[in-house]
Amino acid sequence: MTTPVSSSGFFISFEGGDGAGKSTQIELLAEALRQTGREVVITREPGGSPGGEAIRKLLLEGDANKWSPISEALLMYAARADHLERTIEPALKRGAVVITDRFADSTMAYQGLAGDLGEKAVTTLYQLVVAARGPDLTIILDLPVEEGLKRSGATGDAEQRFESKGAAYQEKVRQAFLEIARREPERCAVVSAKDGIADVAGRIREVIQTRFPQLLSR
């Protein structure tokens, strides 16, 4: 899935398994970007818009087997279409930097590869909904599955449906993200999330300084 720049803004997605620390790193990167005077919009998937947030509850709460992979993917893309239309595209047109906690790579990893729906079906949905409006840069936070499940389990919130699918499924998800990164090295950067928050944040900034130095310049 190729994703050329499609607007005057800049679109960054964070991906990775549960517990990898995406939310924390997104906040730190957003603050660094705001210090350069840029408008930064933080959003998430599923969610990020009124329709997307309504669908989020359906997807993330309840029994692990509540939905089949095809049902999950269709719900994800319904939410994504609303998210793009109402949040992401307007912000990019204003010239903002949009940072999203998950985007289309999560559907490919969780439903397409780990969920056995297959690449073809997910790619078809991607082409219908996203096309050339995907991220300019994707940061994949990589963490061993057991550590990720330990961290995410400590939060105790209700959105634990995917975590409850178990370590074997989560390992498939991890390998799926790494495979996506291998296929699209120009868009994706894998960053180890095993170390402390500051160390991980430093690695992310190094990626941006190397690939898109204009983002962190005043």
Score class of each variant (00 low, 15 high):
23 S>N: 15
191 V>D: 13
208 I>P: 11
107 T>F: 05
154 A>H: 11
171 E>A: 10
158 A>V: 14
176 A>N: 04
207 V>F: 03
22 K>Q: 04
192 S>Q: 14
152 S>I: 06
150 K>Y: 07
169 Y>L: 04
193 A>H: 13
110 Y>V: 02
60 L>R: 07
48 G>W: 09
74 L>D: 14
85 E>D: 14
152 S>C: 04
64 A>Q: 13
6 S>L: 00
117 L>C: 10
183 R>Y: 01
48 G>A: 07
3 T>I: 09
22 K>A: 06
108 M>E: 06
53 E>M: 12
125 L>P: 07
159 E>V: 03
15 E>A: 06
142 D>H: 06
57 K>Y: 00
216 L>F: 07
130 V>P: 00
200 V>W: 05
65 N>F: 12
46 P>S: 01
154 A>E: 08
19 G>W: 00
54 A>T: 11
184 E>Q: 11
218 R>Y: 08
159 E>G: 05
70 I>W: 11
16 G>E: 02
124 T>A: 13
137 L>H: 04
87 T>K: 04
117 L>Y: 01
66 K>E: 13
82 D>I: 04
195 D>I: 10
202 G>L: 12
73 A>K: 06
17 G>W: 03
52 G>N: 05
87 T>G: 04
94 R>E: 03
169 Y>K: 12
105 D>V: 00
46 P>W: 02
83 H>Y: 00
154 A>C: 11
188 C>N: 03
124 T>S: 15
195 D>Y: 03
162 F>I: 13
32 A>G: 09
112 G>F: 03
216 L>Y: 12
125 L>V: 03
56 R>S: 12
152 S>T: 15
10 F>M: 00
210 T>A: 07
54 A>V: 05
20 A>L: 11
208 I>Q: 08
157 D>R: 07
38 R>L: 09
171 E>T: 07
179 E>W: 10
93 K>E: 14
180 I>L: 02
128 L>S: 12
98 V>W: 05
12 I>G: 10
115 G>D: 08
137 L>C: 13
110 Y>L: 08
182 R>A: 08
74 L>I: 15
140 I>N: 02
115 G>R: 03
132 A>E: 09
25 Q>H: 13
132 A>F: 02
75 L>K: 06
156 G>R: 10
50 P>A: 08
215 L>R: 10
214 Q>E: 14
153 G>S: 11
72 E>G: 14
78 A>M: 05
18 D>W: 00
122 V>Q: 06
168 A>N: 08
194 K>N: 07
150 K>P: 12
214 Q>R: 14
206 E>T: 15
151 R>L: 03
29 L>W: 09
16 G>Q: 11
142 D>I: 12
216 L>I: 09
13 S>A: 01
68 S>G: 13
4 P>Q: 02
75 L>I: 02
73 A>E: 05
104 A>W: 00
135 P>H: 06
30 A>P: 10
96 A>P: 01
65 N>A: 15
3 T>K: 08
200 V>K: 03
96 A>Y: 01
66 K>R: 15
91 A>E: 05
198 A>F: 05
112 G>C: 05
126 Y>R: 10
97 V>E: 13
